[in-house]
Design a protein around this nucleic acid. Structure first.
Lengths: 230, 230
DNA sequence: CGCCCATTTGAGTTTAATCAAAAAACGTGG
DNA sequence: CCACGTTTTTTGATTAAACTCAAATGGGCG
C-alpha cells in the first residue's frame, strides 16, 4: 500500500471516543453517519429476536472496524455493545467514501477486512448448525485465543476474555445453565478454565481436537494485497 | 454509476460456463484465479465438518457473485455446489482487480454486494442460534421466497426451490428426518407445501409470524450508492 | 456490610437426534 | 413406454442433548 493511501486510511479516523462497559456503540436500526473502529477494548455485534433472546453475531477486537455495513445501508441491522470499556476511533462516512474513491488501496484494504469478518461469520454458521454444545464452546475459545494474541508458547496460556457465561451462551446459541455445565466439565478434565474473565488453556491439543478447530478460516496469513497484482 | 464503470463491470465477465446439477463450481481449499457470478440457476456455499456432516452457508441466486472471497484470500474456505444446472459468468481475478482500481464505482458495487451477503449470513447465525426447528425452516422459506421473486401478489403463491429436504436439513442445522416432520406439520396446517422442488406458500402471514421474519436484513430497498455521496 | 451480578446446583421436561426400514418419486436405458 | 436401480421422502420406536424452572451460592464493589 502506498504511503499516501496509508496516510488517508489513518487520517480518516479523526477522533476517538470512549464507551463504557455495557454501553451501546451503535444501536440496531440507527442510520449511522460514522464508521467506527476499535482501538482498545472488546465489543460484540448482536441481534435480539422477538422472544427477547439475544444472539451474538461476532466479536470486535482491537484493529477491527465495528460497522462497515453503514457505508452501504441506511439502517444498521444489528447493535454493537461494549464488552469492556472501549476506546473507539470514529470517521465520518463521507470522509471514508472520499478516501475510498481517491485511493483504491484504501477501499481494497477495508473491503478485505470485511471479507475476513465474513469468513468468521461463515465458521460461526457451521459452529451453530453442526456442532454440539461442547464443540461450539471449544471452537469459540480456540478462535478467540488466536484472535486476541499469538498462539500459545507454553502448554498452558491465558488470555483476558471479558465475557460472562451469559455472553458465551448468546454466542453459542445455548442457555447459560448449559454453558456453565460444559465449562465445568472442561475445567474438571483439565482442558480450560475460565474464571473472573480470565481464560486459561491448559491443553490446547485436546481443546482443538474437541472443537475440530481448523484455523485457516481466520486468514491470519497475510491476505493477497490489492494493487500489487493489478 | 457511470457509463464507463457499468461497462467495466459487465465487461470483466468475459466468458460463461455451464455446471450441471451437483457439479462443483469451486472446491474448498482451491486457490481460485477467477471470480464467478450466477447468471442462471441456483447454487450453495457449504462446508463439511470432520464428522462428515455438511453445513450450507448460503444460497447463490441469479445476480449474485459466487466467490468474492478469492479476490483477497489465497484459499477458498468453503465449496460451492450447483443445486441446479447453472450458467455461470467467469472473470479473471486480475481483470476484476484492474477494474476495481480503475473504477472506484465498480469496487463499491462489488463490495456492497458482499456486504449484502454478509447481512444474510448474520441472520443465518441468529436463525441457527436462537430459533426452533420450525422457526428456522419457516424463516429460510420466507427468505428464499423474497430472494427469488417479488413478494406474493396472491395469498397463495409458488416458487421453484430446487433443494431436497436433505439440503434444507443442512441449511437449518437439523436432520433430514426432523425436517421432514416439520414440513409435514406445516403442510397439514395449510401454511406451506413443498413437493417436487416446488414451494407453495398458502398463508404468508402465518409463515411470517412463525418465523418472526423481518425482511429488513435483506436490504432489498436500494442501497446507498457510492460516489453520489462522496 | 449488604447488594448486585454471575455462577452453580437439582429435578423434571422437551426438542431434536438416532437407528432402521418402508414407500414413493425419479431418471435412464432397453 | 416400461422395468429397474437410485434418490428422496416418509414412518416408527427409542435415546440423548439441551432446555426450563427454581433456588442457592459466591464474588466484587460501593
Amino acid at each position: 500500500m502506498s504511503r499516501a493511501s496509508e496516510d488517508a486510511l489513518r487520517g480518516m479516523f479523526a477522533r476517538t471516543i470512549t464507551v463504557r462497559r455495557h454501553g451501546t456503540i451503535l444501536n440496531e436500526g440507527e442510520p449511522p453517519s460514522v464508521i467506527t473502529a476499535m482501538v482498545d477494548g472488546m465489543a460484540f455485534r448482536y441481534k435480539v429476536v422477538a422472544s427477547g433472546r439475544r444472539q451474538i453475531l461476532g466479536i470486535v477486537v482491537p484493529g477491527d472496524v465495528c460497522d462497515l455495513s453503514s457505508i452501504f445501508f441506511p439502517r444498521l441491522d444489528y447493535g454493537i455493545e461494549a464488552a469492556t470499556d472501549c476506546e473507539i476511533a470514529v470517521a465520518e462516512r463521507q470522509t471514508v467514501l472520499g478516501s475510498v474513491v481517491a485511493h483504491p488501496d484504501v477501499g481494497l484494504a477495508l473491503w478485505g477486512a470485511s471479507m475476513a469478518g465474513e469468513a468468521i461469520s461463515r465458521e460461526w454458521i457451521v459452529n451453530l448448525g453442526r456442532r454440539s454444545a461442547r464443540q461450539r464452546i471449544a471452537h469459540f475459545v480456540c478462535e478467540m485465543f488466536l484472535r486476541t494474541g499469538p498462539a500459545a508458547a507454553a502448554e498452558t496460556d491465558s488470555r483476558v476474555l471479558p465475557l460472562t457465561q451469559d455472553d458465551i451462551a448468546d454466542i453459542a446459541g445455548l442457555t447459560i445453565v448449559h454453558v456453565n455445565r460444559v465449562l465445568q466439565d472442561m475445567r474438571a478434565e483439565g482442558i480450560i478454565s475460565f474464571r473472573q474473565r480470565i481464560l486459561t488453556v491448559h491443553d490446547w491439543n485436546r481443546l482443538r481436537a474437541i472443537a475440530e478447530f481448523e484455523p485457516g478460516y481466520l486468514h491470519q496469513d497475510r491476505p493477497r494485497t490489492g494493487t500489487q497484482y493489478s
